[in-house]
């Protein structure tokens, strides 16, 4: 029975991909989560949150959620996911940050990918950042 032979090998392949991807993710999520936990006992986060409060208010987000946007854009989505559970967000705020990040993230890596393709990388970078801001404003309307 060919199909049974395939199943075992198939699940192993899936498990392997999952494990590799999971470890890759955790390599970033765990340090970020740890850093953020430690920082939450210092005045740093509160200082940053107060400073960015007016800017984040236009998206209906608390000041400290700027951290998720910054980490997501400069590092990657995993880094943003590492801090988000610690930000005490409502589901709607989580959705807002997620949509903003999904349109614009990992800009260092992904913009360099577009550069490599010799396509209009700077245009794409500006496009993604502006679309992210626009969807953020849009979701804040609710």
């Amino acid at each position: 029975m060919k199909i049974f032979k395939i199943t075992g090998e198939f699940f192993l392949a899936v498990l392997k991909r999952t494990a590799f991807s999971f470890l890759d993710l955790m390599k970033i999520i765990v340090p970020v989560y740890t850093m953020m936990t430690i920082l939450s006992y210092t005045p740093v986060i509160k200082f940053l949150a107060d400073w960015l409060k007016p800017a984040m208010k236009i998206f209906g987000l608390p000041g400290e959620s700027a951290l998720a946007l910054i980490l997501g854009n400069f590092i990657n989505l995993y880094a943003a996911i590492g801090v988000m559970p610690l930000l005490h967000l409502t589901p709607w705020q989580t959705t807002t940050i997620a949509l903003m990040l999904l349109t614009s993230h990992s800009q260092l890596l992904e913009t360099s990918v577009f550069f490599k393709l010799k396509t209009r990388a700077i245009f794409l970078l500006i496009l993604r950042l502006s679309v992210a801001i626009m969807v953020g404003l849009l979701l804040a309307l609710r």
């Binding site: 996911i81 989580t94 959705t95 949509l99 990040l101 999904l102 577009f114 794409l124 993604r128």
Partner: peptide, 26 residues
């Protein structure tokens, strides 16, 4: 590139945010 800039890895990236409680439609 424009299409992928807006929308890529739709299952993985979206799924990770669903874990945090985001809304799938949006």
């Amino acid at each position: 590139s424009v299409f992928l800039a807006m929308c890529h890895a739709i299952f993985e990236d979206t799924g990770l945010f669903l874990v945090l409680g985001a809304n799938i439609f949006w």
